[in-house]
Design a binder for these strands. Sequence first.
DNA 1: CTGAAAGCGCTTACAG
DNA 2: CTGAAAGCGCTTACAG
Lengths: 324, 324
Amino acid sequence: MKPSIHDVAKIAGVSPTTVSRVLNNRGYISEKTKEKVYRAMEEINYFPNDLARSLFRKRTNLIGLIIPNSSNPFFGELAFHIESICASMGYKLLLCNSLHRKDKEEKYLEMLIRNQVDGVIAVTYNRGILNYHRQNLPIVAIDHYLSETIPVIGSDNYDGGKKATELLIAKGCRHIIHINGPIELKTPANLRRKAYEDVMRQHGRQPITYEVPFHQNYQEVISKLFDEQPAADGIFASDDLMAATVITEAKKRRKDIPGQLKVIGYDGTEAVQSILPELTTIQQPIELISKTAIEILSKAIEGEFDDLPLETYLPVQLLEGGTT
Amino acid sequence: MKPSIHDVAKIAGVSPTTVSRVLNNRGYISEKTKEKVYRAMEEINYFPNDLARSLFRKRTNLIGLIIPNSSNPFFGELAFHIESICASMGYKLLLCNSLHRKDKEEKYLEMLIRNQVDGVIAVTYNRGILNYHRQNLPIVAIDHYLSETIPVIGSDNYDGGKKATELLIAKGCRHIIHINGPIELKTPANLRRKAYEDVMRQHGRQPITYEVPFHQNYQEVISKLFDEQPAADGIFASDDLMAATVITEAKKRRKDIPGQLKVIGYDGTEAVQSILPELTTIQQPIELISKTAIEILSKAIEGEFDDLPLETYLPVQLLEGGTT
DNA sequence: CTGAAAGCGCTTACAG
DNA sequence: CTGAAAGCGCTTACAG
């Protein structure tokens, strides 16, 4: 049987109330009593039961993180930073991999609510979350609009798309193609595409965007792109995994990079940079995004709903490698 | 205020006991009462408080996962599978990134204990965990020996090392070098090295292993390897990130792969395979490892300590790409 | 400076 | 088939 506060009390010869007080450093307690209590706790290896504590306080310091899939380097790195920062602030993280599936997202949400999480950080397209948000559960979203009242944090996607496109133009590309996810999703990430299209038009060029439908392999789309656009000499992929696949496909077709084709991605995770350091990319400030998301969520948890910034876009950085 | 079982009871016109019973499907309840209770729960959007439930049952269905860093593709993928399988079994996952630091591991362990996790899955070198294990906290380890009594689950490292080395030999390499982590750590992963050395000797060759010290960048070690071993024509790196770095270094030095140098890694994660599909590697069955780890942990949680297999090594697979 | 009592939201014997 | 009571392990007014 795990020792409880009563066992400590018995050994220290005081009441449970007093043990609780030294545990929480609350009220006045004589040094002697403190000593006795600490000694007793060590003697029987006592650790407070946070369940009981949370039940009373109506505060768990638990945060739920819903991401599509931590196997993906971007989400894996995001999860790392979010968890690390949470830990440093005394929050604990419940990990949820939704695979972007609505049914899973809803199940996870319900699980998080039952576990009384203080708040949720979501990277989600689906909006089942909305119903739960009405339950006064503080939520922030990363790179996805969930509702009018849920704060979104992300990288400066427009600037990133602009930087990427302008780099390809500056490098002399004549036929620049963009690959992106499905446009019907109202995500800030679509600003990457918007920026690409704006910059192209500003330069009198015709933007061409290949779209990877939801839940579909981009391999095929990329292969089709190569078939249909033999003149392409610049590709801006909206994430690094797509960019890597473009590079692989180019090799297969014996197109020299960067000689005949220049490629730039988006994300700039540690993993991809270490595996494919030559990839030019727009790096998201993942740690800063994490920090900001937690700060905003933390405010919401503390009840400061007034000055919650609804949209926060953090600066990106161009990482130039050998693929441009 | 969140609704409690009392609110439901009031609306349904029954006692809290009855509500609890329909919640748990326990004892006999008339269909009519069930109906009334369900309706009441929906009306006020009631969700049971798992904290209270867990407090009573002394069972949280919470599992702690301690990994070095989810940014690393291998651990990110491991976390994904472990979490997904946990979710399918009704377990919830508390994520902890220890960065291999002993102080963090201990803090996390204490946190997990305070939160009354039912068990812990650890990927850890440090052994502070031992003290906690004595508290009857069920623990399983992945690819690391933690104590005589903690079950270890991993890939068949010896067979993996053998397959890798034999492949390089079969491909005609004359000077095969191995890169691995620090040997002083008693991890099953050191069997990769052992297999390399055995196979080399069986073939009358002199094994040469470059060691990457703990917490040190392998970049430098790899650079040194290239300086000191100009005749090397085969490199077996003990993980894919190292292998990728070897490839990058080879490019820098204009060594043709696989012409002048053949490279094989270890892990075979989805991420690396998608970013660098040409990398030949030994693939770990990450999903199976996860499943097995959870099954064993689950048995330990249910109190079946007798037939816990202390060491489980799952089959690896050679993934041949263009780097060999 | 310290303790007895009530309560956080549940569940489970025990009665009826 | 249903309810009142006790208790899971804490914390916090309230008294003293």
